[in-house]
């Protein structure tokens, strides 16, 4: 799947990423850079999870931030109830996002095309409002966590550098898992559904179940990213579930290169760096980012990852609504 140039690019990017804590020491502003790189990696996990169903499965979910929120709130609510043990928090975050992804997926996947886009959007907005109305857990303002998840006897996450490497390990794990998944029989079926679901059904695959399974896997991966996000900032708020966040994750996927696993990682880095640069120059950075997105969609569909070897990324077919 990976060309040589791509492999070199991926490897050097990951090595560079791993060196961020060291490099930051020379540049200065160490705490900022480490936290920023951690945030990039967390969003990269979320973007990879979306790409699994969007790029490979042709399911245009516009509500993926919901799972970010579910994962974050699972950690946040348990923490507020006095359970800071990560051995409880993280499995609960995974279980909660799996259940909610199964429920949302079961209803949404009965529909096609633009209905699917709008329904996933509406469900994520529903969870957003649920978060806003949870006044016991901060409501609109969100809530602060007392500390990061505790893994007694395993690891202490309270140091930013330790946390950085844990997130890096999870990101690499997610990429490896994604790579194996995409190239497995299951992944082939999912990609077959993207190209022509009716034909897959005719061959005899129960496509609904396959797509639902992919949706749940993707939701869980994004839920893990949410749990990490809550740990990074020790803060949970409904704004993580807002639909603009879903849009941003989607932009990361497109910007990096849809249908390639590493593309979303580059996209996450690209978008967050762009946001950081623009917002340091003007408070009205969104007025610049918006048109950039428009131009990107109109003229640079292959994404950053497509630029690396100059070869056109395989254009995923079947996104137009045959689903």
């Amino acid at each position: 799947m990976l060309t040589n140039r791509r492999f070199v690019a991926v490897a050097s990017f990951l090595v560079l990423l791993a060196l961020v804590p060291l490099l930051a020491r020379f540049v200065g502003g160490e705490a900022f850079w480490i936290k920023f790189a951690t945030r990039v990696m967390i969003y990269a996990i979320a973007a990879v999870s979306l790409d699994l169903i969007l790029g490979f499965g042709g399911m245009v979910s516009f509500g993926h931030a919901a799972f970010l929120g579910v994962g974050a709130y699972a950690v946040g609510i348990l923490s507020a109830e006095g359970i800071a043990n990560g051995f409880v928090q993280w499995p609960v975050a995974i279980l909660a996002s799996a259940l909610i992804a199964a429920a949302i997926g079961a209803i949404s996947l009965m529909t096609r095309g633009v209905y699917f886009i709008m329904i996933t959007l509406a469900f994520s907005q529903m969870l957003y409002f649920l978060g806003v109305s949870l006044t016991a857990y901060g409501g609109d303002d969100g809530m602060r966590l007392a500390n990061r998840s505790r893994f007694p006897g395993l690891i202490d996450l309270s140091g930013d550098v330790t946390f950085f490497y844990v997130v890096l390990a999870i990101l690499i794990g997610a990429l490896v898992a994604g790579h194996r998944l995409v190239n497995s029989r299951f992944g082939m079926v999912i990609q077959g559904c993207r190209s022509n679901e009716r034909r897959m059904r005719a061959i005899g695959f129960p496509t609904f179940r396959y797509k639902l399974a992919a949706f749940v896997i993707s939701g869980v991966m994004c839920g893990i990213a949410g749990a990490l996000l809550a740990n990074l900032t020790a803060f949970v708020s409904p704004s993580e579930m807002h639909w603009t966040r879903s849009g941003e994750i989607m932009v990361m996927v497109i910007m990096g290169g849809m249908g390639s696993l590493f593309g979303p990682v580059l996209g996450a880095a690209g978008l967050l760096v762009l946001e950081e640069i623009l917002s340091s120059h003007t408070q009205h950075w969104q007025a610049i980012l918006g048109p950039i997105l428009v131009l990107l969609v109109l003229f640079a569909k292959r994404g950053l990852f497509g630029l690396i070897d100059g070869k056109s990324a395989e254009k995923p077919a079947g996104l137009t609504g045959h689903g």
Binding site: G247, V251, H284, Q286, L289, G290, I292, K301, L319, T320
Partner: peptide, 28 residues
Amino acid sequence: RTLYRRDHLDQVLCTFGLILFFNEIVRM
């Protein structure tokens, strides 16, 4: 106008960019 023949994903992203733009423009 250029989006009519594109797929829904392109349309969503492009108009999402327009939202960011308009929301910020009115603030400016």
